[in-house]
């Protein structure tokens, strides 16, 4: 029974459809990782500011994303915001907005941690050498901070890739949705389809996330010293 079911993966254009779904998932992940990183770096730099009010606002922004699950956020925007302002937002756009904002929040914490972990004497020595504000950042702080934040940033990316699986809940036709469609279509012919399809999606996510996680670990041990 089971070995006859695996053929559902290559039947017709099923595999192409799944890959097209994966492309949608990857698109959401990639765009939001890029936007989230850029916003997050800016926010992280702002969070090193001395003003207590600014720091509090940024911290609050981060905690708001940490305390409320991402799925709830997507519901709020997909059902709530659209309803309140009487606008239409596609599921994909909602996913992009939420993932970008969430990515920015988490990224800002990584960037802040990286900058604050730099020993103070680095800044002082830079000043003593007569570097300007930008020179200090360009030659002293940023190169060192990048080494400290890159492992965490890559980890965040894998988390975001994994979380993209949730977009199916707000009606995006991603790899999971395509998988469900194939399962429903072939339920009479191949009842075991769900085992194979979800198994394949499971492996697909693993193939994307595992190398990233590995890379982050390698960088972490390499740059630790």
């Amino acid at each position: 029974m089971l070995n006859s079911g695996i053929s559902v993966l290559v039947e017709g254009i099923n595999l192409q459809r799944l890959l097209a779904g994966l492309f949608v998932t990857a698109r959401i992940a990639l765009i939001s990782i890029v936007i989230g990183s850029v916003l997050g770096i800016m926010l992280g730099l702002i969070r090193t500011s001395k003003s207590k009010v600014v720091r509090f606002i940024c911290r609050f922004y981060l905690e708001v994303f940490r305390i409320i699950p991402i799925l709830v956020w997507m519901f709020i925007v997909y059902f709530g915001v659209t309803n309140m302002f009487n606008i239409h937002l596609s599921g994909e756009l909602v996913a992009l907005i939420i993932f970008s904002l969430w990515g920015a929040a988490e990224m800002s914490d990584i960037v802040r941690g990286a900058i604050e972990s730099l020993p103070k004497h680095q800044i002082e020595s830079g000043r003593a050498l007569g570097l300007s504000f930008w020179g200090l950042y360009r030659y002293i702080l940023i190169p060192q901070a990048i080494r400290r934040l890159l492992p965490g940033a890559i980890n965040l990316s894998t988390r975001m890739v994994k979380t993209t699986s949730l977009v199916v809940m707000i009606g995006v036709i991603d790899v999971v949705k395509v998988g469900q469609q194939i399962i429903e279509r072939s339920i009479l012919k191949t009842p075991t389809a769900s085992f194979w399809i979800y198994g394949l999606i499971f492996i697909l996510y693993f193939i994307v996330c595992y190398p990233l996680a590995k890379l982050s670990k390698i960088l972490e041990t390499k740059w630790e010293s």
């Binding site: 079911g5 993209t164 979800y198 999606i201």
Partner: peptide
């Protein structure tokens, strides 16, 4: 660590029942 919970659940709930 490298797979989403949603897929794990789907696999457990819809996939395992088939075997």
């Amino acid at each position: 660590r490298n797979t989403p919970l949603l897929i794990q659940l789907f696999f457990l709930y819809y996939g395992f029942t088939k075997i």
